[in-house]
Design a protein around this nucleic acid. Structure first.
Lengths: 148, 148
DNA sequence: CGAGATGTAATGTCAACAATTACATCAAGA
DNA sequence: TCTTGATGTAATTGTTGACATTACATCTCG
Protein backbone atom coordinates (compact mmCIF):
# COMPACT_ATOMS: atom_id res chain seq x y z
CA UNK A 1 0.00 0.00 0.00
CA UNK A 2 1.25 3.41 -0.83
CA UNK A 3 1.15 6.50 1.31
CA UNK A 4 -2.16 7.08 -0.27
CA UNK A 5 -4.07 10.00 -1.60
CA UNK A 6 -6.19 9.83 1.51
CA UNK A 7 -3.42 11.48 3.49
CA UNK A 8 -3.23 14.42 1.11
CA UNK A 9 -7.00 14.77 1.14
CA UNK A 10 -7.00 14.72 4.93
CA UNK A 11 -4.46 17.55 5.12
CA UNK A 12 -6.50 19.41 2.54
CA UNK A 13 -9.60 19.03 4.72
CA UNK A 14 -7.83 20.08 7.90
CA UNK A 15 -6.42 23.24 6.35
CA UNK A 16 -9.82 24.01 4.87
CA UNK A 17 -11.53 23.54 8.21
CA UNK A 18 -8.98 25.75 9.89
CA UNK A 19 -9.31 28.54 7.34
CA UNK A 20 -13.11 28.38 7.21
CA UNK A 21 -13.54 28.68 10.95
CA UNK A 22 -16.22 31.28 11.66
CA UNK A 23 -16.82 31.95 7.96
CA UNK A 24 -18.69 28.99 6.56
CA UNK A 25 -20.04 25.69 7.86
CA UNK A 26 -17.76 22.97 6.55
CA UNK A 27 -19.87 20.08 5.30
CA UNK A 28 -18.72 16.94 3.56
CA UNK A 29 -20.31 18.17 0.37
CA UNK A 30 -18.33 21.38 0.51
CA UNK A 31 -15.10 19.47 1.09
CA UNK A 32 -16.00 17.10 -1.72
CA UNK A 33 -16.29 20.10 -4.00
CA UNK A 34 -12.95 21.48 -2.92
CA UNK A 35 -11.01 18.22 -3.02
CA UNK A 36 -12.67 16.65 -6.02
CA UNK A 37 -13.44 13.51 -4.05
CA UNK A 38 -16.74 11.83 -3.48
CA UNK A 39 -18.64 13.00 -0.39
CA UNK A 40 -18.61 9.48 1.02
CA UNK A 41 -14.84 9.33 0.82
CA UNK A 42 -14.70 12.65 2.63
CA UNK A 43 -17.05 11.40 5.31
CA UNK A 44 -14.87 8.33 5.86
CA UNK A 45 -11.77 10.47 6.17
CA UNK A 46 -13.48 12.92 8.51
CA UNK A 47 -14.72 9.98 10.53
CA UNK A 48 -11.14 8.82 11.02
CA UNK A 49 -10.01 12.33 11.93
CA UNK A 50 -12.84 12.51 14.43
CA UNK A 51 -11.83 9.23 16.05
CA UNK A 52 -8.33 10.63 16.40
CA UNK A 53 -9.88 13.65 18.12
CA UNK A 54 -8.55 16.21 15.70
CA UNK A 55 -12.00 17.49 14.76
CA UNK A 56 -15.57 17.45 16.01
CA UNK A 57 -18.61 16.93 13.82
CA UNK A 58 -22.05 17.71 15.28
CA UNK A 59 -24.46 14.96 14.37
CA UNK A 60 -27.45 16.04 12.36
CA UNK A 61 -26.60 19.67 11.87
CA UNK A 62 -23.12 19.07 10.54
CA UNK A 63 -20.12 21.34 10.21
CA UNK A 64 -16.63 20.11 11.11
CA UNK A 65 -14.38 22.05 13.44
CA UNK A 66 -10.84 21.64 14.66
CA UNK A 67 -10.67 20.64 18.31
CA UNK A 68 -6.91 20.33 18.70
CA UNK A 69 -3.96 22.67 18.49
CA UNK A 70 -2.54 22.51 14.94
CA UNK A 71 0.97 22.71 16.35
CA UNK A 72 0.29 19.48 18.23
CA UNK A 73 -0.93 17.55 15.21
CA UNK A 74 1.82 15.91 13.16
CA UNK A 75 1.67 14.45 9.69
CA UNK A 76 2.41 11.05 11.15
CA UNK A 77 -0.60 11.29 13.44
CA UNK A 78 -2.79 12.19 10.51
CA UNK A 79 -1.39 9.34 8.46
CA UNK A 80 -1.85 6.71 11.15
CA UNK A 81 -5.33 7.98 11.90
CA UNK A 82 -6.22 7.12 8.31
CA UNK A 83 -4.19 3.96 7.90
CA UNK A 84 -3.43 2.43 11.29
CA UNK A 85 -0.78 0.03 10.04
CA UNK A 86 0.16 1.76 6.85
CA UNK A 87 3.90 1.72 7.37
CA UNK A 88 3.89 -1.99 8.12
CA UNK A 89 2.41 -2.79 4.74
CA UNK A 90 4.21 -0.04 2.88
CA UNK A 91 6.95 -2.35 1.76
CA UNK A 92 6.10 -5.47 -0.16
CA UNK A 93 7.74 -8.83 0.45
CA UNK A 94 7.20 -11.86 -1.75
CA UNK A 95 6.15 -15.06 -0.02
CA UNK A 96 8.49 -17.96 -0.60
CA UNK A 97 9.12 -19.46 2.84
CA UNK A 98 7.90 -22.88 1.79
CA UNK A 99 10.51 -23.28 -0.93
CA UNK A 100 13.35 -25.76 -0.41
CA UNK A 101 16.06 -23.11 -0.68
CA UNK A 102 18.01 -21.46 2.13
CA UNK A 103 17.74 -18.06 0.50
CA UNK A 104 13.97 -18.38 0.17
CA UNK A 105 13.65 -19.43 3.78
CA UNK A 106 15.67 -16.58 5.18
CA UNK A 107 15.04 -13.64 2.87
CA UNK A 108 12.11 -12.49 4.98
CA UNK A 109 14.24 -12.22 8.08
CA UNK A 110 17.15 -10.68 6.20
CA UNK A 111 14.91 -7.87 4.93
CA UNK A 112 13.18 -7.28 8.23
CA UNK A 113 15.85 -5.03 9.75
CA UNK A 114 16.37 -2.85 6.66
CA UNK A 115 12.66 -2.38 6.15
CA UNK A 116 12.12 -1.57 9.79
CA UNK A 117 14.78 1.10 9.58
CA UNK A 118 13.04 2.64 6.59
CA UNK A 119 9.69 2.68 8.35
CA UNK A 120 11.28 4.35 11.38
CA UNK A 121 12.88 7.01 9.21
CA UNK A 122 9.53 7.79 7.61
CA UNK A 123 7.84 7.92 10.97
CA UNK A 124 10.39 10.30 12.45
CA UNK A 125 10.27 12.60 9.46
CA UNK A 126 6.49 12.70 9.45
CA UNK A 127 6.44 13.40 13.15
CA UNK A 128 8.55 16.49 12.63
CA UNK A 129 5.97 17.99 10.26
CA UNK A 130 3.06 19.68 11.99
CA UNK A 131 -0.29 20.82 10.68
CA UNK A 132 0.67 24.26 11.97
CA UNK A 133 3.66 24.45 9.66
CA UNK A 134 1.55 23.43 6.67
CA UNK A 135 -1.10 26.00 7.50
CA UNK A 136 1.57 28.68 7.70
CA UNK A 137 3.01 27.61 4.37
CA UNK A 138 -0.47 27.74 2.87
CA UNK A 139 -1.10 31.25 4.20
CA UNK A 140 2.24 32.39 2.88
CA UNK A 141 1.36 31.10 -0.60
CA UNK A 142 -2.09 32.71 -0.57
CA UNK A 143 -0.67 36.05 0.46
CA UNK A 144 1.86 35.86 -2.36
CA UNK A 145 -0.76 35.35 -5.10
CA UNK A 146 -4.07 36.56 -3.77
CA UNK A 147 -6.60 35.10 -6.14
CA UNK A 148 -10.26 34.67 -5.28
CA UNK B 1 3.02 3.06 -5.97
CA UNK B 2 4.39 1.09 -3.10
CA UNK B 3 7.97 -0.02 -2.54
CA UNK B 4 7.04 -3.10 -4.43
CA UNK B 5 7.75 -6.77 -4.13
CA UNK B 6 10.19 -6.34 -6.99
CA UNK B 7 12.74 -4.85 -4.62
CA UNK B 8 12.55 -7.82 -2.28
CA UNK B 9 12.81 -10.21 -5.18
CA UNK B 10 15.82 -8.34 -6.51
CA UNK B 11 17.64 -8.64 -3.18
CA UNK B 12 16.67 -12.30 -3.10
CA UNK B 13 18.21 -12.79 -6.54
CA UNK B 14 21.40 -10.91 -5.70
CA UNK B 15 22.00 -12.93 -2.55
CA UNK B 16 21.26 -16.11 -4.45
CA UNK B 17 23.68 -15.17 -7.21
CA UNK B 18 26.36 -14.35 -4.67
CA UNK B 19 25.94 -17.60 -2.77
CA UNK B 20 25.74 -19.75 -5.90
CA UNK B 21 28.94 -18.39 -7.38
CA UNK B 22 31.05 -21.31 -8.60
CA UNK B 23 28.47 -23.88 -7.52
CA UNK B 24 25.58 -23.69 -9.98
CA UNK B 25 24.70 -21.70 -13.04
CA UNK B 26 22.02 -19.22 -12.01
CA UNK B 27 19.31 -19.15 -14.65
CA UNK B 28 16.06 -17.23 -14.57
CA UNK B 29 14.20 -20.52 -14.20
CA UNK B 30 16.24 -21.42 -11.14
CA UNK B 31 15.57 -18.03 -9.57
CA UNK B 32 11.90 -18.35 -10.46
CA UNK B 33 11.85 -21.60 -8.53
CA UNK B 34 13.53 -20.05 -5.51
CA UNK B 35 11.52 -16.84 -5.41
CA UNK B 36 8.17 -18.23 -6.47
CA UNK B 37 7.90 -15.67 -9.23
CA UNK B 38 7.36 -16.14 -12.91
CA UNK B 39 10.56 -16.53 -14.97
CA UNK B 40 9.61 -13.50 -17.07
CA UNK B 41 9.34 -11.35 -13.97
CA UNK B 42 12.77 -12.56 -12.96
CA UNK B 43 14.18 -11.78 -16.37
CA UNK B 44 12.81 -8.25 -16.20
CA UNK B 45 14.33 -7.72 -12.78
CA UNK B 46 17.66 -9.20 -13.85
CA UNK B 47 17.56 -7.01 -16.90
CA UNK B 48 17.26 -3.92 -14.71
CA UNK B 49 20.08 -5.14 -12.47
CA UNK B 50 22.18 -5.70 -15.55
CA UNK B 51 21.56 -2.17 -16.80
CA UNK B 52 22.66 -0.88 -13.42
CA UNK B 53 25.85 -2.95 -13.87
CA UNK B 54 25.40 -5.03 -10.76
CA UNK B 55 25.39 -8.32 -12.66
CA UNK B 56 26.37 -9.76 -16.01
CA UNK B 57 24.29 -12.21 -18.00
CA UNK B 58 25.92 -13.99 -20.95
CA UNK B 59 23.54 -13.98 -23.88
CA UNK B 60 22.57 -17.40 -25.16
CA UNK B 61 24.33 -19.54 -22.61
CA UNK B 62 22.91 -17.80 -19.57
CA UNK B 63 24.03 -17.74 -15.95
CA UNK B 64 24.00 -14.48 -13.97
CA UNK B 65 27.04 -13.34 -12.02
CA UNK B 66 27.77 -10.43 -9.75
CA UNK B 67 30.12 -7.90 -11.32
CA UNK B 68 30.24 -5.33 -8.52
CA UNK B 69 31.46 -5.28 -4.95
CA UNK B 70 28.51 -6.07 -2.65
CA UNK B 71 29.75 -3.48 -0.15
CA UNK B 72 29.38 -0.84 -2.88
CA UNK B 73 25.79 -1.75 -3.76
CA UNK B 74 23.17 -0.06 -1.58
CA UNK B 75 19.51 -0.86 -1.19
CA UNK B 76 18.68 2.51 -2.69
CA UNK B 77 20.67 1.72 -5.80
CA UNK B 78 18.83 -1.57 -6.16
CA UNK B 79 15.50 0.12 -5.67
CA UNK B 80 16.11 2.89 -8.18
CA UNK B 81 17.48 0.40 -10.68
CA UNK B 82 14.07 -1.30 -10.59
CA UNK B 83 11.87 1.76 -10.30
CA UNK B 84 13.72 4.84 -11.55
CA UNK B 85 11.29 7.36 -10.09
CA UNK B 86 9.75 5.21 -7.44
CA UNK B 87 10.12 7.65 -4.58
CA UNK B 88 8.53 10.43 -6.59
CA UNK B 89 5.37 8.43 -7.04
CA UNK B 90 5.48 6.78 -3.64
CA UNK B 91 3.27 9.41 -2.15
CA UNK B 92 -0.11 10.08 -3.69
CA UNK B 93 -1.57 13.52 -4.18
CA UNK B 94 -5.10 14.14 -5.33
CA UNK B 95 -5.55 16.42 -8.31
CA UNK B 96 -7.73 19.44 -7.65
CA UNK B 97 -5.80 22.40 -9.04
CA UNK B 98 -8.62 23.44 -11.31
CA UNK B 99 -11.07 23.96 -8.47
CA UNK B 100 -12.09 27.52 -7.58
CA UNK B 101 -10.79 27.26 -4.03
CA UNK B 102 -7.56 28.66 -2.62
CA UNK B 103 -6.92 25.49 -0.63
CA UNK B 104 -7.37 23.32 -3.70
CA UNK B 105 -5.04 25.52 -5.72
CA UNK B 106 -2.24 25.50 -3.17
CA UNK B 107 -2.43 22.13 -1.47
CA UNK B 108 -0.03 20.62 -3.99
CA UNK B 109 2.66 23.17 -3.21
CA UNK B 110 2.00 22.98 0.52
CA UNK B 111 2.60 19.24 0.51
CA UNK B 112 5.63 19.37 -1.70
CA UNK B 113 8.16 20.22 1.00
CA UNK B 114 6.93 17.65 3.53
CA UNK B 115 6.81 14.91 0.92
CA UNK B 116 10.24 15.79 -0.36
CA UNK B 117 11.60 15.49 3.15
CA UNK B 118 10.08 12.04 3.50
CA UNK B 119 11.54 10.90 0.20
CA UNK B 120 14.95 12.18 1.26
CA UNK B 121 14.75 10.33 4.55
CA UNK B 122 13.91 7.10 2.75
CA UNK B 123 16.73 7.63 0.30
CA UNK B 124 19.29 8.26 3.00
CA UNK B 125 18.21 5.24 5.01
CA UNK B 126 18.29 2.98 1.98
CA UNK B 127 21.69 4.27 1.01
CA UNK B 128 23.07 3.20 4.37
CA UNK B 129 22.06 -0.42 3.77
CA UNK B 130 24.45 -2.39 1.60
CA UNK B 131 24.07 -5.70 -0.14
CA UNK B 132 27.15 -6.79 1.79
CA UNK B 133 25.38 -6.30 5.11
CA UNK B 134 22.37 -8.27 3.94
CA UNK B 135 24.56 -11.11 2.68
CA UNK B 136 26.30 -11.21 6.05
CA UNK B 137 22.98 -11.28 7.86
CA UNK B 138 21.86 -14.11 5.60
CA UNK B 139 25.00 -16.13 6.27
CA UNK B 140 24.59 -15.59 9.99
CA UNK B 141 21.05 -16.94 9.83
CA UNK B 142 22.01 -19.98 7.78
CA UNK B 143 24.81 -20.86 10.16
CA UNK B 144 22.43 -20.66 13.07
CA UNK B 145 19.92 -23.14 11.61
CA UNK B 146 21.75 -25.24 9.03
CA UNK B 147 18.96 -26.87 7.05
CA UNK B 148 19.41 -28.28 3.57
C1' DC C 1 21.17 -27.78 -36.48
C1' DG C 2 18.96 -28.23 -31.96
C1' DA C 3 18.74 -27.57 -27.04
C1' DG C 4 18.55 -24.35 -23.64
C1' DA C 5 18.88 -19.67 -22.37
C1' DT C 6 17.71 -14.60 -22.51
C1' DG C 7 14.83 -10.34 -24.20
C1' DT C 8 10.51 -8.43 -24.82
C1' DA C 9 5.89 -7.51 -26.56
C1' DA C 10 1.08 -8.53 -25.86
C1' DT C 11 -2.47 -10.13 -23.17
C1' DG C 12 -4.87 -12.12 -19.01
C1' DT C 13 -5.88 -12.06 -14.06
C1' DC C 14 -6.74 -10.33 -9.74
C1' DA C 15 -6.83 -7.56 -5.65
C1' DA C 16 -6.87 -2.97 -3.70
C1' DC C 17 -8.76 1.49 -3.92
C1' DA C 18 -12.02 4.76 -4.92
C1' DA C 19 -16.70 6.02 -6.66
C1' DT C 20 -21.29 5.38 -6.32
C1' DT C 21 -25.82 4.05 -4.62
C1' DA C 22 -28.80 3.43 -1.02
C1' DC C 23 -30.63 4.04 3.24
C1' DA C 24 -30.77 4.71 8.36
C1' DT C 25 -30.16 8.27 11.71
C1' DC C 26 -30.03 12.69 13.62
C1' DA C 27 -30.95 17.89 14.82
C1' DA C 28 -32.94 22.28 13.95
C1' DG C 29 -36.39 25.23 12.17
C1' DA C 30 -40.86 26.26 9.71
C1' DT D 1 -44.66 17.51 13.96
C1' DC D 2 -42.78 17.25 9.69
C1' DT D 3 -39.48 18.67 6.37
C1' DT D 4 -34.86 19.63 5.26
C1' DG D 5 -30.19 18.99 5.21
C1' DA D 6 -26.55 16.74 7.30
C1' DT D 7 -23.75 12.58 8.94
C1' DG D 8 -22.70 7.28 9.26
C1' DT D 9 -22.16 3.09 6.88
C1' DA D 10 -23.11 -1.03 4.23
C1' DA D 11 -23.14 -2.90 -0.35
C1' DT D 12 -22.16 -2.70 -5.03
C1' DT D 13 -19.78 -1.30 -8.95
C1' DG D 14 -16.01 0.56 -11.68
C1' DT D 15 -10.93 1.34 -12.33
C1' DT D 16 -6.36 0.82 -12.00
C1' DG D 17 -1.93 -1.12 -11.45
C1' DA D 18 1.03 -4.99 -10.36
C1' DC D 19 1.97 -9.48 -11.37
C1' DA D 20 1.33 -13.81 -14.29
C1' DT D 21 1.23 -15.87 -18.53
C1' DT D 22 1.83 -16.76 -23.41
C1' DA D 23 4.31 -16.34 -27.40
C1' DC D 24 8.07 -15.72 -30.09
C1' DA D 25 12.53 -13.73 -31.66
C1' DT D 26 17.35 -14.06 -30.70
C1' DC D 27 21.51 -15.84 -29.04
C1' DT D 28 25.50 -19.47 -27.78
C1' DC D 29 27.50 -23.73 -27.68
C1' DG D 30 27.78 -28.73 -28.19
Amino acid sequence: MQISMKCSVAVHCLIFIHEAKGIVKVTSNLLAESTGCNPVIIRNILSALKKAEFITIPRGTGGAELCADPSQITLYQIYTALEPNGLVSLIGIHSCQDRPCPVAQNIGEVLQTPYHKIAEAIKETMNRITLQSMIEEFQRLVKKSPDL
